[in-house]
Design a protein around this nucleic acid. Sequence first.
DNA 1: GTTAGCATGTAAGGAGTTACATGATTTT
DNA 2: AAAATCATGTAACTCCTTACATGCTAAC
Lengths: 209, 209
Amino acid sequence: MPSKGATLELAVLGLLQESPLHGYELRKRLNLLLGWTRLLSYGSLYPALKRMLRSGWINEVTTVSSSVSRRQRIVYQITPAGTEFFTTEITEAGPAAWEDESFNMRFAFFSRTDANVRMRILEGRRSRLQERLDRARSTRGGSDRYVTELQRHAIDSVEREVRWLTDLIEAERTAQDRTVADRAPDRGPLTSPPKTAVPNTAVPNTEIS
Amino acid sequence: MPSKGATLELAVLGLLQESPLHGYELRKRLNLLLGWTRLLSYGSLYPALKRMLRSGWINEVTTVSSSVSRRQRIVYQITPAGTEFFTTEITEAGPAAWEDESFNMRFAFFSRTDANVRMRILEGRRSRLQERLDRARSTRGGSDRYVTELQRHAIDSVEREVRWLTDLIEAERTAQDRTVADRAPDRGPLTSPPKTAVPNTAVPNTEIS
DNA sequence: GTTAGCATGTAAGGAGTTACATGATTTT
DNA sequence: AAAATCATGTAACTCCTTACATGCTAAC
């Protein structure tokens, strides 16, 4: 079975690979990682965790009093089965991986993805967007000013995303060439951002658990 | 009641205000108007049409043989009640109107919206996006290269959209000033696009029905 | 001591998709 | 005559949100 969606489950597993977390904290991290446009609700997250428990991908450990806080929490940790599922799914670079949500999630875990899989996902995503552009450009028939403007803006946005992907693919490719040519340790791409980076004025925000 | 979503229904009513259409054709136009990223399915459209029939917003007329084609179609036309509902909803410039889908739909029908309502929707949408930016910029704590890059790109995209809205607001404002000052007929904004327009190389596509 | 934020859940429902079904008409 | 496209629908299912419920703990 090609496994339909399961984006949320995979994102949770990806986060739990770094460290065990409880639901409340998971939600915060998921909102950072993906979404931030759409805040994930608890009504979505907690049932997902229950499902994952039943699937045997995660274990729950109830903490009563630990070092700093004596607040009761249910901490989830990933199981070997969960790790295996995550690895299998994240390696799957088929059409499901170039859809919006799915792509974002996979991209967020690219550090734990093989270089050739990264490449296939980036290229697949780009051709998916290219298809959209072709469709949009061939069917523009709006006489209305606002409709035209809306479509123009939408096309601009997708074109921008295609350029972003192209830059990333280029960065991946040169990084890979370096590795093959020099036998140097794979430092990976993105050591220098492909476009003008936002000046990092943000608060470091070093809150752990 | 503030009326939850009903984006699809409103979009259908908006299209039917121009001319009566059958389901198949409606889907095509809806995909142009909104979506084009997400193709609307018939499993969504036809039940919506049934609901709208029951609500009395539209009538159905079965055509058997007309001028060009003798193919059987069910053509829907908007009723006075439907027009009233559409007008009321489209004038409602509350928070529901600045959400992604809802905003796009309302924007697409801006030609049939009062200038002051347009302004409120554009400004509301912009401050909604501004909130997202503030949240995203204050919580950036990713050490991972790819996560950082993903968030940077997401922030860039929203910043771009904010600028787009700012230009549109400016265009609306000057258009309104002109109208007030000269007593000239309201030619509206967007007579010249605020940014570099895509060179219109698209096929005119004059397919009607 | 009360408010704000932490923490976990459930039930009902909204909005959509996919898969299934069927058949007419036009094009090749 | 076959294939593509037009045309309309239903049933099951997915995924998510909102509203409801509950209670603890930290800060003011």
